[in-house]
Design a protein around this nucleic acid. Structure first.
Lengths: 372, 372
DNA sequence: TTGAAAGCGCTAACAT
DNA sequence: ATGTTAGCGCTTTCAA
């Protein structure tokens, strides 16, 4: 069903111009909605476009506009692999233990882990909803190794994308540094652990943890404990600090802590440990919903009723909070809105070579359900 | 820290050529690893590249090579919105319930729903692992409305991507048809409901359901029921058929069915209904792990022990199977391998305008854990 | 083996 | 308001 095309390839502006009896420039103006085109001619051109089945060639357009209308959506992690400034010793380890394929084991488990948390899906939702009406497309990239990070930088330097939206899963992530060093546009989800002059959106984690603490206290809990996130992740640390500080101010000097890794399983392990060491606890704050879900499972297995015997508060208000039995009382993080703001910061930045870094902090909110 | 660049922009081939004292063509040959370049000159060029900090401009390259080195990774659904092309009757349903914005409610909940199922993360993992070593990047797109589908087609027609990898969530999805009509390269995950000349990978769903049925029978279950997937999804229908047929052959003529929608919540609702109508059942096959998880919750709430009182078998072997209490016995679908094969089919196709459609069917495998 | 030169399809001055 | 023209940065014949 290919239309009458003179040459073999797809129709070009030239073809449309010929069909419409005007110049390439006029066709271009109509297509890009530039003013100063006679309405009658506009109509003729539109006809010619649909007759020829013309679609503008993106590469040609990008070449002259210097925009890709794409952004890299990067999920970044501190290297499991060896780190180094430029990556000298990274090469050393890479020889050992690798399977036949370059990215097999490591890449697989990293991406799997990323998607296991409902959090990332919400980020994508927020980003896509913002980008779509603006005609910008997200290119999915994972930067969990030194090499993968270099590829992200190279990709941006080639002009394949107009900037990067980076979701860092660990502190000590070198990517933000690499990006700013290379003078590339980027916005982070969450403040970088090492101070880097780069824009980001984040949540007032301590305030969120405070809400959880106050709710548990108001409920009458007196023997509290917490399952923290990884302490090398700023968010994990901030939630712990906020929880502890609030309780300390209310006279609870010592709070048992078990460190988790934001996975359901780590939440189970942590809960087991807390229960062994403090069998009489009556309230738990888990630093995310996945760990809270794991905690609920373990509590029930040990004959504790939630919330009657032990109250549980989660964090995030992800889909896991609703899926849990009982549904989790949790601290809501407006991930979609934060992700949209991240995209906005990237796209709306002034055209200059490097605009000043901006940060936007969102406030959490307590959502009361059945678990506490 | 920008290097000494003559002009304002990034260094070009011209700059490198000048620095190396050779022609643009030679630099291009070195960069693209084309043979016939003097080793000494190669070295000089490489020096010049690193001195100038050169990175090839992707748009310029794409313009001449006619490849984008990108593929669209499309999550597609039947249109909630009005349909135009092939699907006339789809429009009928669409009138009601539309929000003011085109992509808002529908789009948001659609993406959220997509990521709620661990399935999609596994697809991404498989695809990315295959694409990455080949220097190809996935552009994430959602095609849940008529308009969004048109945008996918337009995107490909612009040459922004070399083809599409399509994960369809519903039958009656018009996208495969639109794609082949436009002569665009695409591979589907799962056979299209309406026959379309297009390549795809799929699972032998009926065989999987048979494995589940045989396992439940071998365990001694005699009063079986099933929570099916949506019956307008071929996979949902095939799993039901496979389960029913196997049991029928063993003398079980009637099997209670409750239809779910592949979500945990729908699994809960379905299980409630089955329990009301058949309180004495002793075995359940759920058409995916999410619904199986929901079923386990409901069974426990009704005082049934899993697997002692009621055995439960899931489908997929997703992360939900391990997260469930008890861990699910389930039918493994090798999603990552299937996704990688999908990418391979797209990339390895002969360069001609339209190669013949190929399909690759994978075999499922029973994974026995605690739930049955 | 290397260089010169012709475009790829588009936008954006500039000229009319 | 429309047309002419000069590139954007790269690959790739074709000559040398």
């Amino acid at each position: 069903m290919t239309d009458d095309r003179r040459s073999a390839g797809a129709p070009t502006l030239e073809d449309v111009a010929r069909a419409a009896g005007v110049s390439r420039a006029t066709v271009s103006r109509v297509i890009n909605g530039v003013r100063n085109v006679d309405p009658a001619i506009q109509e003729v051109v539109r006809q010619a476009v649909s007759v020829t089945g013309y679609a503008p060639n993106r590469a040609a357009r990008s070449l002259v506009t210097r925009r890709a209308d794409a952004v890299a959506l990067v999920v970044s992690g501190a290297g499991v692999e060896a780190e180094a400034g430029v990556g000298a010793e990274a090469a050393a380890r890479s020889g050992a233990g690798g399977g036949p394929r370059a990215t097999a084991g490591g890449g697989g488990s990293f991406t799997a882990q990323v998607f296991a948390d409902p959090f990332f899906g919400r980020v994508v939702t927020g980003v896509v909803d913002y980008l779509r009406p603006r005609g910008v497309h997200p290119v999915l990239m994972f930067a969990e190794t030194s090499r993968a990070r270099d590829e992200v930088v190279a990709y941006l330097r080639q002009g394949s994308a107009d900037g990067a939206l980076v979701v860092s899963t660990h502190a000590e992530d070198p990517l933000p540094g690499l990006l700013t060093e290379a003078g590339l546009a980027a916005v982070l989800f969450a403040r970088p652990a090492r101070p880097v002059p780069i824009s980001y959106v984040d949540l007032a984690h301590q305030d969120g943890a405070r809400l959880a603490a106050e709710h548990l206290l108001a409920r009458g809990c007196r023997r509290l404990a917490t399952i923290s996130g990884p302490l090398d992740v700023p968010a994990g640390r901030a939630r712990l600090t906020g929880f502890r500080d609030t309780l300390a101010r209310q006279g609870h000097a010592y709070i048992p802590v078990a460190e988790g890794r934001f996975t359901q399983e780590s939440g189970e392990v942590a809960m087991e440990r807390l229960l062994v060491e403090h069998p009489d606890l009556d309230g738990v704050f888990a630093a995310n919903d996945l760990m809270a879900t794991g905690a609920c499972h373990v509590l029930r297995e040990h004959g504790r009723r939630v919330p009657e015997d032990v109250a549980v508060v989660g964090f995030d208000d992800s889909s896991a909070a609703l899926a849990c039995r009982p549904p989790l009382t949790t601290v809501r993080q407006p991930v979609e809105a934060m992700a949209a703001e991240m995209a906005r910061l990237l796209l709306d930045r002034p055209p200059g070579p490097s605009s000043p870094a901006t940060s936007v902090i969102f406030e959490p909110e307590l959502v009361v359900r059945a678990s506490a």
